[in-house]
């Protein structure tokens, strides 16, 4: 099957998957307890009814669903319940560049650190270097982002004053946010790379190459690496999607106006339209990056053929 054919087939699947996600999310929203108008100071019931009528929430559920679907088809995500005066399209347009920048830089750092550490540790298996590097990686895994982020803020923001500790416009706090994500994901990637590199180094074809006297470096980078990186690539699909789709903790700690903050706040506000909007963005990222990750895995491993 040609790559083009494969991609178009996967595209059709993705559209269907997106439809399922939208449908399930719509009904999940409506079954969640509470509604967008519930607040600490209770609002009289007749006013809640009027607001529901204004937003069309008084109609039968299925009618609401159809209206919603019709609007989605023309790309209209609706008005936000929580940010009055903004449409969901505008909210997402304002916030995705933030998440994309933090996520891509974070991931870049993670790959730059994680993959070489993993390969190097695998090549020096069970040596002091291996244990040292892996302990470092483990440290990154043990420290959750909500611990690393404030520590980075305290050291590089307050003590050394290299970066700002919060904010987006005219602020450098996003660097610390990316660094937090980079450290965390680098640790994962390093462990994963080492593990699968070892799997590859034990494969028969590597032994054959060794027996034939191919240089260790060539074996490592030319032969083992292609197969060894495959699980990392499989892991990267969803990881990249969740990095770009918004990472609540770092956005919250560095006060960055990204998608992650919007999603979590939309859930606590029961902002139905904004929940749906952020879920659609995230779903699209998942479908796209998982496709790219599948393609990359095939490219790395010529034995595998593109299968629908």
């Amino acid at each position: 099957m040609s790559t083009a054919h494969f991609i178009s087939y996967r595209f059709a699947q993705a559209v269907f998957a997106l439809f399922c996600i939208v449908t399930i999310t719509f009904f999940l929203n409506r079954f969640a307890p509470g509604n967008p108008f519930l607040d600490e100071k209770a609002i009289p019931e007749h006013l809640v009814d009027n607001m529901k009528a204004y937003y069309g929430l008084d109609k039968p559920l299925f009618t609401q669903y159809l209206v919603n679907l019709k609007n989605l088809l023309v790309g209209d995500l609706g008005a936000s319940f929580g940010n009055k005066g903004y449409t969901v399209n505008e909210v997402i347009a304002q916030s995705w560049p933030v998440s994309a920048r933090i996520g891509l830089c974070g991931l870049g750092l993670a790959l730059l650190l994680g993959v070489p550490i993993g390969v190097f540790a695998a090549a020096h298996r069970n040596s002091r270097i291996d244990y040292g590097l892996m302990s470092l990686a483990l440290l990154g895994i043990c420290l959750p982002t909500f611990v690393i982020a404030p520590i980075l803020g305290n050291i590089f923001g307050l003590r050394l004053k290299w970066f700002d500790v919060a904010g987006w416009e005219g602020s450098s706090a996003w660097v610390l946010a990316s660094a937090t994500l980079g450290i965390y994901y680098a640790a994962y990637i390093a462990r994963l790379t080492r593990g699968s590199m070892l799997d590859q180094l034990n494969q028969d074809y590597i032994r054959t190459a060794q027996a034939k006297g191919v240089s260790p470096n060539k074996i490592l980078f030319k032969h083992a690496f292609r197969g060894g990186i495959s699980p990392v690539v499989a892991y990267l699909g969803p990881a990249l999607a969740s990095l770009i789709g918004g990472t609540f903790v770092v956005e919250f700690v560095f006060n960055l106006p990204g998608l992650g903050q919007h999603f979590v706040r939309a859930v606590t506000n029961r902002d139905y339209t904004l929940i749906q909007g952020t879920v659609i963005v995230f779903a699209t990222l998942i479908l796209v990056f998982n496709l790219l990750s599948d393609l990359a895995q095939v490219w790395l491993d010529p034995r595998r053929k593109l299968k629908t």
């Binding site: 998957a17 999940l28 969640a32 879920v279």
Partner: peptide, 19 residues
């Protein structure tokens, strides 16, 4: 099977837990 995985990734987990 893999599209089911994709769908599960994308669903709003927070809301599912709340419900």
């Amino acid at each position: 099977m893999m599209r089911v995985v994709d769908i599960l990734y994308a669903l709003p987990f927070l809301i599912i837990v709340i419900i």
